[in-house]
C-alpha cells in the first residue's frame, strides 16, 4: 500500500487515488488539428522509468493534482494542486 499526498487531504492510501495521465500533455483544439498531434495527445506517452510527473485525482475529495514520484522505487517526491502546477503543464 503506497501513501500518496493529496494537496487538500494529506497522506492517504493509494486506493483512494486514480491515475489521470502524464502531466504536460497539452490538448490541441480544433477539428483541423493535425492527425499526428491529436494521436500524440490521445495516445503517445513518455512512460519514463524513474522520475515521473503525473496528474492524479484523489477520488474522495475530487482534487486533481500533479505528483512527482519514482516509477521504480515508488518514492513520492511532491504533490501540487493543479492551480499551483499551472494547469498540469
Amino acid at each position: 500500500m503506497q501513501l500518496f499526498h493529496c494537496p487538500f487531504c494529506g497522506a492517504r492510501d493509494e486506493t483512494e487515488f486514480h491515475f489521470g495521465g502524464e502531466a504536460g500533455n497539452l490538448r490541441p483544439d480544433g477539428a483541423d488539428a493535425p492527425a499526428d498531434r491529436w494521436a500524440n495527445y490521445l495516445y503517445m506517452r513518455d512512460n519514463p522509468k524513474g522520475a515521473v510527473r503525473e496528474v492524479w485525482v484523489h477520488m474522495n475529495c475530487g482534487e486533481f493534482f500533479v505528483m512527482e514520484r519514482d516509477s521504480v522505487s515508488h518514492q513520492v517526491l511532491s504533490s501540487t494542486s493543479l492551480d499551483g502546477a499551472g494547469h498540469a503543464q
Binding site: M1, Q2, E14, T15, F19, N47, S71, S73
Partner: peptide, 13 residues
C-alpha cells in the same frame, strides 16, 4: 495495479 510502475514486485491492495 492502480499505479503505473516499473517495480517488479507485488503489493497488498
Amino acid at each position: 495495479d492502480r499505479v503505473p510502475s516499473y517495480g517488479q514486485r507485488g503489493n497488498l491492495p
